[in-house]
Design a protein around this nucleic acid. Sequence first.
DNA 1: TTAATCGTCGATATAATTTGACTATAATAT
DNA 2: ATATTATAGTCAAATTATATCGACGATTAA
Lengths: 170, 170
Amino acid sequence: MQYSVGVEYALHCLVYLIPNESTIGIKELAFFQGIPETYLSKIFTKLTKAGIISSVPGVKGGFKLARDPDDISFWDIVEAVEGKKPIFQCQNIKDKGYLYRDRDCSGCEVSTSSCSINLVMLEAEETMQNYLRSKKLSWLEEELDRVLPAQTRKETRAFFAKGNSINASE
Amino acid sequence: MQYSVGVEYALHCLVYLIPNESTIGIKELAFFQGIPETYLSKIFTKLTKAGIISSVPGVKGGFKLARDPDDISFWDIVEAVEGKKPIFQCQNIKDKGYLYRDRDCSGCEVSTSSCSINLVMLEAEETMQNYLRSKKLSWLEEELDRVLPAQTRKETRAFFAKGNSINASE
DNA sequence: TTAATCGTCGATATAATTTGACTATAATAT
DNA sequence: ATATTATAGTCAAATTATATCGACGATTAA
């Protein structure tokens, strides 16, 4: 059980969009990180639909953040890529069970009451979501400034600054 | 992204083991719930190896809890079935990236520092784990007594009480 | 001994993930 | 206008993970 790599791609890519001075294309992002373009483009479609980034088609097009980095949380990104389905989904095996499978139980209390196990799992997941909601892209930007060598940060920003960006062609 | 059904099977099955008055077999558990025997037996192997339940081989054998229900948490069960790997695993795409892929970076600071994004995801997961660690099987037992109709609970316990348990053969 | 039961190992079937090839459409530079 | 360069979307191959079945050996109660 794991999140898809799409989540990792999305989180890492969005770091580069934070400066938000110009649009950045899929090609540049994929080349810079050594990851496949086609898959990344699908991830970006999801992020666009979720309103996290906005797309600019055509020559000199690309993507930029659609909201303030302080208004984009880790959870927004995970949810956009992975969807809204909970990690644990109870398939209500009770209903297939010996006590009920041969009875018509459409109206009785057991079939309407929700599974206690399911509730616990949902609550557990919610604590995780709340933690991720509290971490914003703006925080990540500061954290990276603190943690990464200044040289690395500078080179990275230089790569994505428009003008010298024809480096995407090897 | 989802936990496997194995987690659901395990949680539901362990409920029936709580009384711990006699061993219960895979066949009974699978029949009662209408789920496949073979898969369930694999799940139970995992639970056994994790020290949550213990197995009694031979005729009239089966499974029983290896510890007090107050000492078995939801997380123990999830971890036993799903393994210890984190939900989010950073594959360090940084290292394949443009800035580093052509350099020998075996000793430099960037490759040793851990990814901030990864840390956040691990911390988030930990909050979920802590919640699940706080919920024990003993709590679940009380909760089910409170929530389910007394009739259902009684019928269920009767099914698994040894003696009349040849009902597993349809 | 025999039948029931767990433990282990593969085989298989189904589904999800990841990637690639290709087409359509939209915007811009010239 | 047209060529160019971008995203958007479709289709499907390749890979991996999940779920299920089946077979065989070991153990044990009757």
